[in-house]
């Protein structure tokens, strides 16, 4: 069972935990269910880390394990270790453009599960490469290349869907200046 400190940690990071669930699941109800399953599993765990860093990794690992269990039960478990060949970041039409946040999130939702998984851990949950490596039980260098490949896939997806809004940088700079 969680003590008061661990309960407080849970409250502190629950937004990130839910964000991770949203990133993993294709729909909100699935994310809510995964979130609550994770919290329940944590609350009833016989042994809980007493160090915050370890606790955070432990909690997200519970969620990831539950998610993998579900996929496995549905026969939809992807191969996480496959090194997919992905083109480099597309450079065509990349100049003089600002990435639109909504477009990024839409493209993220269309990524493969392994790509969503690694980007969610690093970009949404804020784990360091070392923490992510510990969670996935792989070397930190593997995390580095997986993150890079996932970002390349994300950029390629955005390019495909033409979801990048052209916004001249000069105008952005002026806007920043005006905001003084």
């Amino acid at each position: 069972m969680l003590d008061d400190t661990q309960q407080a940690w849970l409250v502190q990071i629950r937004r990130k935990v839910f964000g991770y669930a949203c990133a993993l699941c294709p729909d909100i109800s699935g994310a809510e269910d995964l979130y609550q399953d994770t919290i329940l599993r944590a609350m009833t765990a016989p042994s809980v880390p007493t160090d915050f860093t370890a606790y955070r990794v432990w909690l997200f690992r519970i969620m990831r394990n539950l998610w993998i269990d579900r996929l496995r039960a549905q026969g939809r478990l992807p191969e996480f270790d496959t090194v997919a060949e992905i083109d480099d970041m597309p450079s065509a039409h990349a100049d003089d453009q600002v990435v639109n946040a909504l477009a990024v999130r839409q493209a993220f939702g269309a990524l493969s599960k392994p790509h969503r998984d690694i980007l969610a851990l690093v970009d949404i949950c804020g784990f360091s490469y070392a923490e992510a490596a510990e969670m996935l039980d792989v070397p930190a260098g593997t995390i580095m290349s997986r993150v890079s490949r996932a970002r390349a896939a994300l950029a390629a997806r955005m390019q495909e869907e033409r979801n990048v809004i052209s916004l001249p940088l000069r105008r952005v700079a002026r806007k920043i200046g005006d905001g003084a």
Partner: peptide, 8 residues
């Protein structure tokens, strides 16, 4: 930065 607030 765009992904940081995912689900927020």
């Amino acid at each position: 930065a765009a992904l940081a607030g995912y689900g927020a």
